[in-house]
Simulated assay, not measured.
Amino acid sequence: MTATPSIQSRTSSETAESHSKVPALVEYPERATVLNLAAEQAASVDADEASPFETLRRLGELGLLTKGRHGSLLPQAAVIYDLATECMSTAFSLWAHRSTITFFDAVGRSLPDGLADGSVSGSTAMAAAFKDAAGVGNIAVTAEPTEDGYVLNGVIPWASNLYPHGVAVLPVVTAEGHKLIVTVRTEAAGFDVKPMKNLLALDATASGFTKVTDVHVPSEDVLSDDVPGFLASVSAPFLLMQASFCLGLSAAALTSAQEYRDSSNGVFREDFDRREQEFRELSEEVIRLAEDPAAAGRLEVLKARLNAAHLAQAAAHLELTVVGGRGYVATSATARRFREASFLPVQSPTEGHLRSEIRRG
Rank of each mutant, 00 (worst) to 15 (best):
residue 189 A to V: 05
residue 97 H to Q: 09
residue 227 V to G: 07
residue 33 T to R: 10
residue 10 R to F: 05
residue 304 A to G: 07
residue 166 G to A: 12
residue 95 W to Y: 10
residue 121 S to W: 12
residue 66 T to C: 07
residue 59 L to C: 01
residue 100 T to D: 07
residue 262 D to C: 04
residue 243 A to P: 07
residue 90 T to P: 01
residue 195 P to L: 15
residue 328 Y to M: 14
residue 2 T to R: 07
residue 114 G to H: 05
residue 58 R to S: 10
residue 4 T to L: 12
residue 224 S to F: 00
residue 138 N to T: 14
residue 85 T to Y: 05
residue 113 D to F: 02
residue 324 G to V: 08
residue 20 S to W: 08
residue 276 E to L: 11
residue 299 L to Y: 00
residue 358 I to F: 09
residue 128 A to G: 09
residue 134 A to K: 05
residue 250 S to K: 10
residue 315 A to E: 12
residue 274 R to I: 07
residue 164 P to I: 04
residue 133 A to T: 06
residue 155 V to L: 01
residue 289 L to F: 02
residue 86 E to P: 02
residue 25 L to I: 11
residue 67 K to L: 15
residue 185 R to A: 13
residue 328 Y to G: 00
residue 350 T to K: 10
residue 177 G to E: 07
residue 183 T to D: 11
residue 226 D to L: 01
residue 342 S to F: 09
residue 77 A to D: 12
residue 133 A to H: 13
residue 256 S to T: 14
residue 276 E to F: 08
residue 332 S to W: 04
residue 193 V to A: 05
residue 177 G to T: 09
residue 142 T to P: 04
residue 48 D to H: 10
residue 254 L to V: 04
residue 217 V to W: 01
residue 198 N to R: 09
residue 131 K to M: 15
residue 156 I to R: 06
residue 247 L to W: 09
residue 45 V to P: 11
residue 277 Q to F: 01
residue 330 A to R: 12
residue 277 Q to I: 02
residue 251 A to G: 13
residue 299 L to R: 13
residue 164 P to F: 06
residue 301 V to W: 01
residue 215 V to R: 06
residue 94 L to M: 09
residue 33 T to P: 00
residue 248 G to S: 11
residue 51 S to Q: 10
residue 245 F to C: 00
residue 197 K to R: 15
residue 181 I to G: 03
residue 66 T to S: 15
residue 354 L to W: 05
residue 20 S to Q: 06
residue 343 F to A: 12
residue 24 A to K: 02
residue 109 R to P: 00
residue 35 L to K: 04
residue 133 A to E: 14
